[in-house]
Design a binder for these strands. Structure first.
Lengths: 275, 275
DNA sequence: CCTTTTATAGAATTTATATTCCATTTGCGT
DNA sequence: ACGCAAATGGAATATAAATTCTATAAAAGG
């Protein structure tokens, strides 16, 4: 007897062997299928109480399916919970393990980044709250001029936003620090405008400083950054969070780019509706 | 002191009080925000090991935020895990409903772009030939200076490449046309250098022209473009093809960015092996 | 209807996990 | 440089949880 290692395999096993199970084990199987979250998170005695069985029955149940004990079976339920939810890090972790095995061909590197990018995109679904996104779009839609700023790794995103916003005939200014005029370029921001700042750790000091200063002028700030600890998050009216995956010691921009593009298209729709 | 009862409240508390926290507590806060799943599922000692702290620090951490112990705080992380999973399922359901009737909510747009990005990335795996990739890497590795050029939609990629190559201490020049000096910037290309050009349809004329001119000077050219019909493909020594998916009349850059990043990392490895 | 086998309940035990406590270190103000 | 307060590490302890064991109860077979 071999114990199912995945949630789906276990589910399947529970279903097919359901008939041959004893009364109490049937009862537990039904409970397990209906309450997988309990199986994943509660203690043996808590589950036993809820399913109206003895704790020992749960252990017998687990052993009947080939596990050494209940805890081992619980791991299967737990990993399911994680896969379903926001966790894509496990996949990445296994990815980096694989990386350890001397992957020196370029196409292996490409595969790793593709996997990482897909994981980051999937994750984006979970971490971006629809409300924040809506709020960001609305703020930008009401802007007279959108000022864009980013430096270093985040700069390509601002640069892309400048291009895409121009396609929408939305007025925007890219504060790129060209000619050492970072703050000078920002000086023309005024009431009615909005600052869209993008920065990831380690946060470029100019961008952080500009955000603070602009906040003091009562200009609305929308930001794209990486987590609540970001200094941008603290000073922004809306902060959209992205978490890029690190593969081979480099972070991609796939997810951030996708979010930026979404912002543009959603903004375009909002503007269309107005007119 | 009142302990946050929800994940969002806790996150918020972690962010706002992050500054006033002691060294070890900061460390734990950061780990918790980056690995909420671990916080939800692992044991105190397992988390302690991963976050490189003592188990007792985790208990102090929980108490610092008003909980009676770590277990109480863990409940918050656990309930988030459950809610997150079910929310996601509901969202998928409501999304497919909305999609049928052309919903215009921003998060639907986001989902479309995420799906599009994933499709483009998967496609990338098939269309990029390992040989070409290897050849591109080799050509770039042998370059004295890498000249980068792109305009319009492709420009962010060149801009990102410039940033990433600098990280590798690989000499590069970004021909961005700033100050109307597009061709002037390119004038200093000489034997031993390589031109890396990126352009998608409709191909920016400057870039195409520059590629042609540079080809005549017998400078190797590596390009990233979209299909064999690209004028870049014809004049390049190696042309890496990417096909971005068009969603809502806009093309993402997720796949192209991923390819660009791959090129950088593979190049980095090639350079390491040389030395 | 009795015997044998299998399943079950519940207490007892073992194992693992969280928490506390205190000696030591670190940081800070004087 | 000194003393004080806060923070930390790590062993010791307490708590909780999983698992085993056994007497009892239910089925199954003759």
């Amino acid at each position: 007897m071999i114990a199912p290692g995945t949630y789906d395999a276990l589910r399947n096993e529970l279903a097919t062997r359901h008939d041959e199970l004893s009364k109490r084990l049937k009862q537990i199987a039904e409970y397990a299928l209906e309450n997988p979250n309990d199986m994943a998170l509660e203690t043996v005695s808590a589950i036993a109480a809820r399913a109206k069985v003895q704790p020992s029955s749960l252990i017998r149940f687990a052993k009947a399916f080939g596990y050494t004990g209940f805890s081992e079976m619980q791991k299967v339920f737990r990993s399911h919970l994680v896969e379903n939810g926001s966790n894509y890090k496990e996949r990445i972790r296994s990815l980096s393990r694989d990386n350890a095995r001397q992957s020196n061909s370029s196409s292996v590197v490409l595969d790793d980044f593709i996997d990482g990018g897909i994981a980051a995109l999937n994750n984006l679904r979970h971490v971006v709250s629809p409300e924040k996104l809506e709020q960001a779009v609305e703020t930008l839609a009401n802007a007279d001029v959108i000022y864009l700023t980013a430096q270093k790794r985040a700069f390509p995103i601002a640069s892309y936003l400048a291009y895409a916003l121009a396609q929408l005939d939305k007025r925007c200014v890219l504060i790129d620090g060209n000619g050492g005029m970072f703050f000078e370029q920002a000086r023309s921001i005024r009431k009615g405008d909005v600052l869209l700042a993008i920065s990831f750790k380690s946060y470029a000091s100019e961008v952080v400083q500009l955000v603070k200063e602009t906040k003091n002028k009562d200009i609305p700030i929308v930001s794209i950054s990486d987590g609540v600890l970001s200094p941008l998050a603290q000073h922004s009216d809306v902060c959209l969070e992205v978490e890029e995956v690190e593969v081979h010691a480099f972070r991609s921009l796939a997810a951030s780019m996708t979010l930026a593009l979404t912002l543009v298209v959603a903004l375009g729709r909002a503007l269309d509706q107005e007119s």
